[in-house]
Design a protein around this nucleic acid. Structure first.
Lengths: 346, 346
DNA sequence: CTGAAAGCGCTTACAG
DNA sequence: CTGAAAGCGCTTACAG
């Protein structure tokens, strides 16, 4: 063992273990990585010493030599949003099983911070990143990462058709939800919420617009607004005060839909009776709202798992063809969209 | 520049930059770290080449030599819980400013996974960790980390009096909330929610118990239950069906309180009129519930920031005295605890 | 103010 | 099946 340098605790190295075991560093290294080249008796002896000494593998040193760090980055635009937190939980699960460590950073929808942390992750030698691009990110980012041969998978949002992508089929999800309302007899249907323009917004809105047009209806009731309960509350007034009031609303997400439920009950009205309301995401609370919320389930945890698996594959096969995993969504019908009393709006 | 090894992209090194700039590697290294030892003209020239070549600093190599990685770990027991996600967001902010990268792991309340990821973080050379210990963690964990000279700060929960700790003053928060209800005339007050035993539970419950006893009241209505809305809904029945029904309830957190609001409205009752309800945390939704929820604000984002600052200090001064930052809480009075109609319960 | 040399703790051919 | 040697990309004394 070496001298303990004042203050800093010593860190055991392969050399310490090798000396104690009476073998070379190379042999200890092979034992650590379970190489079949090592004789069983040697392995047992070395393992014993490893445990006895409390040796901790130094991955920085290993990765410098091996040119991979067993580390990946996850970049999301807002940790406070439970949806992204769930995505992170899914990523964490898969990476933990695979034995990788996760660098996490929150871009907070800032392209500048996003650039900063991507650089930081490259400097730390991350083997790749999963990114949900901040609002305003251009496809040039992905091209640049590709040019650097830095494995990347886009999740939930995409800014470039290049490369891997994990998400849910927002467009079909919205289409189905709209279709459901039309079947119930609705004609004046609004699309509520979403202030930022990105692929997730575009796809949800497009699903709505496409379905409306297919049925010869006008998709003109599109309210851009922040993704907050307050925005949902405000939307109720706006929609009911139209010349031709809406009879139904599909929200960008559940949070906005909860706001609409509150806005309705403030006016002594009821969702599913006076105005049909559908949310999007199926968060934990949606079955417990009053009335229970009809919504489109998107399973962010699963998307996170898929994203992590895509990245692991991409790291293993840098030049394979791009892969996309787009999970189907599911319309969960509860009470907030119940058939209208006056459903006969020709 | 060296040969491009087949497949793997080349990574520029100090040697490449030095060669191009006509200086030594040591000089480039000094430029990178803004050392005052370098002449201005040299610095400008080298910086230019660095940019031109798109050099990316290799922190693994640097940290191997410098014995610090500018990396820290955050270990939380459940990313799906928005409260912990907010904590993580606060940690991220401070670390980003300081230029450190963050390893995140979710123990999911599993002590086994917690052990696994702590080892992983040590292997990756994290300079320290912030940990919200999983249920069942013993103080021995902290002693062990200390013995390894691995800087650690406990956050939100603590299992050991040793070392740094960042949290909110749960006990006083609960005491104040209870006091508020007693002042409104309540005598039969329940404490609802929390199935796991850990410091955060103990402190909140103790605040309740202490306050009740101080006022000569019996703190016998303590309902252990999961931290879900459903548990809150169920609690309403239990409390109202007592021989001597409760007139007020303080919940472990807002989620349980929301459940109680729902449970009341299911029975045609109203919080603040038929039963006073107080939550804990002051999550975003609490001002928007019906009725708006009286609650105790705890600010997890700030706690996260404090925890990160404590860890940075601990890394800089490993042997300084332990520090604790316990933020005060704030009782936010809204409508769910309005004075009882029949407040004259002697 | 700058450079040559040693070393951080591993892994990787290469010998034997 | 095991060991000696070189090298991954930096930083750190030490000379000059």
């Amino acid at each position: 063992m070496r001298e303990r340098s004042a203050g800093r605790p010593i860190r055991l190295t392969l050399a310490d273990v090798a000396a104690r075991a009476g073998v070379s560093r190379a042999t200890v290294s092979l034992v650590l990585r379970d190489s079949p080249l090592v004789a069983e008796s040697t392995r047992v002896k070395v393992r014993g010493i490893l445990d006895e000494l409390g040796y901790v593998y130094n991955r920085s040193a290993a990765s410098m030599r091996a040119a991979r760090s067993r580390t990946v980055g996850l970049l999301i635009p807002g940790l406070s949003n439970p949806f992204f937190a769930e995505l992170a939980a899914g990523v964490d699960q898969v990476l933990d099983e695979a034995g990788l460590a996760l660098f996490l950073a929150d871009s907070n929808e800032s392209v500048a911070k996003q650039e900063r942390v991507i650089l930081r992750m490259r400097e730390h030698g991350a083997d790749g990143i999963i990114i949900c691009p901040a609002v305003g990110t251009t496809k040039e980012l992905i091209s640049r990462l590709n040019a650097w041969s830095f494995p990347v998978v886009q999740a939930l949002r995409h800014v470039s058709p290049l490369g891997d992508y994990a998400s849910a089929d927002y467009e079909i999800g919205m289409d189905r939800a709209t279709e459901h309302l039309i079947r119930l007899g609705h004609r004046r249907i609004a699309f509520v919420g979403g202030e930022h323009m990105h692929s997730a917004y575009r796809e949800r809105r497009d699903g709505f617009v496409t379905c409306m047009r297919r049925h010869g209806l006008s998709p003109d009731l599109i309210l851009r607004a922040p993704l907050t309960r307050q925005a949902g509350i405000d939307a109720v007034s706006m929609l009911l005060e139209q010349d031709e009031p809406a009879t139904a609303a599909i929200c960008f997400n559940d949070v906005v839909a909860f706001g609409m439920l509150l806005g309705l009950s403030d006016r002594g009205l009821e969702a599913g009776v006076d105005l049909a309301v559908i949310g999007f995401d199926d968060v934990a609370e949606s079955s417990l709202s009053r009335p229970p919320l009809t919504t489109v389930a998107t399973m962010p945890n699963q998307i996170g798992q898929d994203a992590a698996r895509l990245l692991l594959r991409r790291i293993a096969h840098p030049y394979g063809p791009p892969e996309r995993v787009i999970l189907p969504t599911r319309l969960v019908v509860r009470d907030s969209c119940g058939a209208l009393r006056s459903a006969r709006v020709a």
